[in-house]
Design a protein around this nucleic acid. Structure first.
Lengths: 338, 338
DNA sequence: TTGACAAATGATTGCGCAATCATTTAGCAA
DNA sequence: TTGCTAAATGATTGCGCAATCATTTGTCAA
């Protein structure tokens, strides 16, 4: 009562094992009559292919490796949803790893994944170690970096400019008359740092730069940490009149703390979030945020892998910028200014 | 320049391939001297085991299959974080699938996973189809159901009673003097329905049951949907004086809509959430919610699989109830009552 | 009818490893 | 020393499949 093999199916259908194998992988090369008999035999025996044997024989697997820095960050669960939506109708399966924002840990995970001969790799960011980058260059499958943009991807990159997204947001706040705009940053991963750089560039351009306006913490972002950071900010910079946050939950926490302190938003204090995760738009007042195309990034990354493995050539444009959208809402809209 | 095999390592170290294999899997059976030589050879050649070959030869893989109904639901990302934290130090890898709350789709995913000879299966809930259940019974590895509790798990179950959690919450609200308590349910998956049943039992017990107090939608829960549902609820049941929500984001949306309508919480209207995802505790006023041990569930499930595969016997207690904690906060605390 | 060629099908082999069984070496009591 | 046992190491085999090459069958023009 052991699991049937291709040979068993072949015997049942009266054909050789390799014909069954072909019927499954290249059905157009097998006659209709045999395909039908084989299909019946498969159903009768309950045959299911053995992926390990297939992988060993062909030296490639149907596993797509996805490396993200966090599972709990909604940004990456959205990416994963997009990737999964595209892949679930295919024969690929998703193997995930959580790098924990640690490039050294990431390197080990890449090494492990590469040993699987994956069908594709999706990895967040561009800040891999040199060794990681080399492994990704050498692995014989499509590699998609995501959530960022660069002219020099390992293979291709699908994302947006964190720098530009931050700069656009801060420009908007400046246009609305905010002057003492703080940067609130959590975790301080590479993409947060790029947002910080975008913030800094705009502040300097308008001669509003002030080093004391940076409020950062290595802790992960959360509503709670947002509340605490606002308290610290107002102690440190009493004349602060707005914040650009590196993530929405921090912005929500800050907005809630403003409510508690009766700090008038947007009149006395402007708030801008990042990622537009859904809660910001529902707050009182609604909070301005930068929408980032996370689900679409996941989808496009998966689709690229499917296409390349189906024989499509490597595209000319290897950095696919899906952009972002500043969702201007009440929290930064001061009537009579701008 | 192809990838080295056990034979290559053996040649380099001056031993046979099988000794290298043993040194990696059962080091205590290989002398220290050889272990050192082998270890050096592995480093020198950059040997990495081929999991497909290992799986084919041994008829078991080191893949742990995790089936969850949603990636974007924070509940399951927390579970995954816990599972990952336990597994990442081990040789296991995690392969995930999103069942989309669809038992038929789930069945196909189980079939696929079973074909991998997984080292373990973690699956949300107890509402698998008969065919799914049979496959899970037959698969030769530990199977952990999670997020629920039952006397009759496939193998073991790690979770809590959704019914009891809801009942405890509603009892609290009744004790605080709320009478026209609505149930707000989104998605209406099996666990939500158990919460609804817990709500109903308590309402009936206190003779407060009223069919018009059920507000449900098949849509996924979100802050936005919570706001809309409150509007519908107040239209339908103007004398409603509180809600028990099946998820925190709905509760947050309802609280924000109450702010907008100047509906006094907790005096005129009580709000209780579910899962205690973090934002509820930061709201103004803070929202009561049921903390559920999601991360711990993920950890325990992973640890069980590790232990069983290490030879531990099946435990006597096969339903591991990790309980829940009602976090009573301002949104349901009426002074002078209860 | 024949021959040439394409389409369809089959036989053989090896992927890299672990299970199994066989052999050698080490340790030690008598 | 001998003889015995346990520990350490090795040789052989097959897991289930796909790559490669070989063979058969079908098709059609001349």
């Amino acid at each position: 009562m052991k699991r049937p093999t291709l040979i068993d199916v072949g015997r049942e259908a009266g054909v050789s094992a390799i014909t069954v194998s072909r019927a499954l992988r290249e059905p157009e090369k097998v006659s209709k009559a045999l395909r039908d008999r084989i299909s019946k035999a498969i159903d009768k025996l309950g045959y299911v292919p053995n992926p390990a044997a297939a992988s060993l024989a062909s030296n490639r697997s149907s596993i797509i490796a996805v490396l993200v820095p966090s599972f709990s960050n909604n940004v990456f669960s959205d990416v994963l949803s997009g990737t999964n939506a595209v892949l679930e109708k295919t024969g690929y399966s998703i193997q995930i790893a959580n790098t924990g924002y640690n490039p050294i840990a990431e390197e080990g995970m890449i090494r492990k994944f590469v040993s699987l001969s994956p069908a594709g790799v999706i990895i967040a960011g561009v800040d891999q170690t040199a060794a990681s980058r080399k492994m990704l260059k050498d692995v014989d499958c499509p590699v998609v970096q995501i959530m960022d943009i660069t002219d020099d991807p390992v293979d291709v990159i699908v994302g947006f400019s964190n720098f530009d997204a931050a700069a656009t947001s801060v420009e908007h706040m400046v246009a609305q008359g905010y002057r003492r705009i703080a940067f609130v940053g959590t975790r301080m991963d590479p993409r947060t740092q790029q947002r910080m750089a975008g913030y800094e560039a705009v502040m300097r351009k308008h001669q509003l730069y002030d080093a004391s306006l940076f409020i950062t913490t290595p802790q992960k972002s959360s509503v709670e940490i947002g509340r605490h950071l606002l308290a610290g900010l107002l102690d440190k910079v009493p004349d602060c009149d707005g914040v650009f946050c590196n993530n929405d939950d921090v912005a929500v926490g800050i907005a809630l703390e403003c409510q508690r302190r009766n700090l008038a938003v947007p009149e006395a204090f402007g708030i801008c979030g990042f990622n537009d995760l859904g809660t910001t738009s529902q707050m009182n007042p609604a909070i301005t945020s930068v929408y980032t195309p996370r689900v679409e990034i996941g989808e496009r990354a998966a689709q690229y892998i499917i296409d390349r493995n189906a024989g499509h050539p490597k595209p000319e444009v290897r950095n696919i910028d899906l952009g972002f959208t500043l969702k201007v809402r009440a929290s930064t809209l001061r009537t009579g200014t701008g």
